[in-house]
């Protein structure tokens, strides 16, 4: 797909996850991780880059995401087809359980991948939307730690909702 880089030697980078697994990625993938961009551009990315906040399970997913986006964008297809393709991929990619989604979201935040961050936040929001508080608590294992008095105070602020 990326024929332009084939002329020169393809640059690869090694990313090391929290649990010590090393991933080899091409430059087109690595540059999407804004957090290491400076390291890459300053040629300080040897021998590998340690990403302390991301587990190998999540990093593998993040790389899959970046790879697909890099390939789709560099391919010869027109912008509208590429957009459609990315949309389908993104939808499919977000088909994970809530825990993985949260991990992906905070990884995207830490690695500074804007599009993935937006995607995961939007997906999280869609999970909260139209659900009751009890359902949301259950989904994300949030414990209700309000005292009776506190809960009363909150209810007062939202009096209109309980009419």
């Amino acid at each position: 797909m990326s024929s332009s880089t084939e002329l020169t030697e393809k640059k690869v980078f090694l990313l090391k996850s929290l649990d010590g697994v090393i991933f080899e990625v091409e430059e087109s993938v690595a540059v999407q991780l804004e957090v290491i961009r400076e390291l890459i551009e300053g040629d300080c990315a040897r021998p590998f880059i340690s990403l302390y906040n991301v587990t190998s399970e999540i990093l593998a997913l993040v790389i899959e995401y970046c790879k697909h986006h890099a390939e789709t964008c560099s391919g010869g297809t027109s912008a509208t087809i590429a957009d459609e393709d990315l949309k389908t991929f993104d939808n499919e990619f977000m088909n994970v359980d809530e825990n993985i989604l949260l991990e992906l979201c905070s990884a995207a935040d830490y690695l500074d991948i804007k599009s993935l961050f937006e995607l995961t936040c939007r997906t999280l929001a869609s999970l909260i939307k139209d659900r009751t508080i009890i359902e949301v608590r259950k989904m994300f294992n949030v414990e209700n730690d309000f005292s009776v008095v506190e809960e009363k105070a909150v209810r007062k602020e939202f009096a209109w909702a309980f009419k």
Binding site: K129, F146, E150
Partner: peptide, 18 residues
């Protein structure tokens, strides 16, 4: 995450926990 929600949905999250 809240920024993607309408105020009615986002506001209700104050009930979740401290």
């Amino acid at each position: 995450v809240l920024s993607f929600l309408s105020a009615a949905d986002a506001g209700m999250t104050v009930f979740l926990s401290r």
